[in-house]
C-alpha cells in the first residue's frame, strides 16, 4: 500500500511540488516547453534558409553561430525543440496508453485473455527493438507519423508488463471485491477503482517513456532514418556529423542540441525520482532519517540507490 497516502490526484501533485528534485525537473521542463511554444515568434522565417557564411563561431549576430549550411543554429535549436518535444511527448503518451490498455486488461481479466495478451506482450518484448526500429523506419515513408508509429509499436511491451503486474496485485485487494459485490461493472472497476491507485506508476512511466522516445527519435534522425529536411535536434546532429563538425571543430553545431536532449532527460529523471520518493515510504523515511542525522551534525548516510522504473531499458 505504498501509494495510499499520496494516491489522490490533488494531494499527489501538491506533495510533488514540495520536492526539490521535482521543482528542478519542472523548471527545466517548463523552460523547454516555453522555448518550443515561443520559438516561431522569436525566430520567424524558415530556419533552413541561408543566413551567413558556413561554420561561423558564436557571435553577437548569431548567438550560437552557423552550421555547415550557413543556417542559424539558435533558430534551429528553438524550432527543433518543437519537433523533438512533440514527438517525445506524443510517443510517450501513446506508449503509456497502449501499455495501460493491454496490461490492465490482461491483469484484470486473467485466465485465457491474460494468457493471450501476455504472450503477445512477451513476443514484442523479446523482439530486439533497435533492428526492428531501423527496418520499419527504412521501409515506411519518412516523417513524424512514421517515427511515432514505429517507436510506439516497438516499446509498449515493457510498460504493459509493469502495468499488468500492478493490476494483478491490486485486483486481489478487498476493495475490488467490494466494488464487485456492490454491483460495479468491469470497466468501472478497472478505470475508477484500480487505475487511480496506480497513478504514480503511470506518471513516472509516462516520463520514462518520453525520455526514451526523445532519445530514440534523436537516434533515428542521427542515423538518417527521418525526414532530413525537417528541423529537429536529431537532424541537427545528423547534419553536424555529415558536415564533419568534429573535424572542423565547430562544436556549436552539435553541443547545443546534445545538451538540450540531456537536459530534458535530466529533468524527467528528476521528476521520476521525486515521484518515487513521495510514493515509496522507505525512501521517504530514509530522507527523514538523513535530515535528523544532519541536524545532529552526524552527516549523511548513503544508502543503496533504488533505480526508478524508466532507467531499466
Amino acid at each position: 500500500m505504498a501509494d495510499t497516502e499520496y494516491a489522490t490526484g490533488a494531494r499527489f501533485f501538491r506533495a510533488l511540488l514540495r520536492q526539490k528534485k521535482a521543482a528542478t525537473g519542472a523548471v527545466i521542463l517548463l523552460f523547454f516547453l516555453a522555448l518550443a511554444l515561443l520559438a516561431p515568434l522569436a525566430f520567424p522565417g524558415d530556419p533552413t534558409r541561408f543566413v551567413a557564411r558556413q561554420n561561423q563561431a558564436p557571435s553577437a549576430r548569431h548567438l550560437l553561430g552557423t552550421n555547415g549550411q550557413g543556417q542559424d543554429v539558435l533558430a534551429q535549436l528553438a524550432l527543433g525543440a518543437r519537433t523533438s518535444l512533440f514527438v517525445g511527448f506524443s510517443v510517450g503518451f501513446l506508449i503509456t496508453l497502449l501499455g495501460l490498455a493491454i496490461g490492465m486488461t490482461a491483469g484484470y481479466l486473467g485466465g485465457l485473455a491474460d494468457g493471450l495478451l501476455n504472450t503477445f506482450t512477451n513476443v514484442f518484448l523479446i523482439i530486439p527493438a533497435l533492428p526492428l526500429l531501423i527496418t520499419l523506419a527504412s521501409f515506411l515513408p519518412p516523417g513524424a507519423t512514421t517515427v511515432a508509429l514505429v517507436l510506439t509499436a516497438t516499446s509498449w511491451a515493457w510498460p504493459a508488463r509493469v502495468f499488468r503486474a500492478q493490476t494483478l496485485s491490486l485486483r486481489e485487494k478487498d476493495f475490488v471485491a467490494a466494488a464487485l459485490a456492490s454491483g460495479e461493472g468491469s470497466r468501472r472497476i478497472i478505470f475508477a477503482e484500480i487505475l487511480p491507485n496506480m497513478l504514480s506508476l503511470v506518471v513516472s512511466s509516462f516520463f520514462g517513456n518520453v525520455v526514451y522516445a526523445i532519445g530514440a527519435d534523436v537516434g533515428l534522425a542521427f542515423l538518417g532514418f527521418e525526414d532530413l529536411n525537417k528541423v529537429s535536434w536529431g537532424t541537427m546532429l545528423y547534419w553536424s556529423q555529415n558536415n564533419s563538425a568534429l573535424l572542423t571543430g565547430s562544436w556549436w553545431t552539435f553541443v547545443p542540441p546534445g545538451l538540450c536532449v540531456a537536459l530534458v532527460a535530466f529533468a524527467m529523471t528528476m521528476l521520476i525520482y521525486a515521484i518515487d520518493e513521495i510514493t515509496n515510504p522507505r525512501l521517504r523515511s530514509e530522507k527523514e532519517i538523513a535530515g535528523v542525522l544532519k541536524k545532529l551534525g552526524l552527516g549523511q548516510r548513503r544508502s543503496t540507490p533504488v533505480l526508478p522504473y524508466g532507467n531499466e531499458r
Binding site: M1, D3, T4, E5, A7, T8, K173, D174, F175, A177, A178, A179, A181, S182, G183, E193, P196, N197, L199
Partner: peptide
Amino acid sequence: SLAFRRKVQVIFQDPFSSLNPVR
C-alpha cells in the same frame, strides 16, 4: 445479476483494504 447483488452484500475482514484509498 444486479438483483442478486442488491439482495446479498459482503463485509470484509480487513477494513484497511476493503475501502479504496483514493476515494
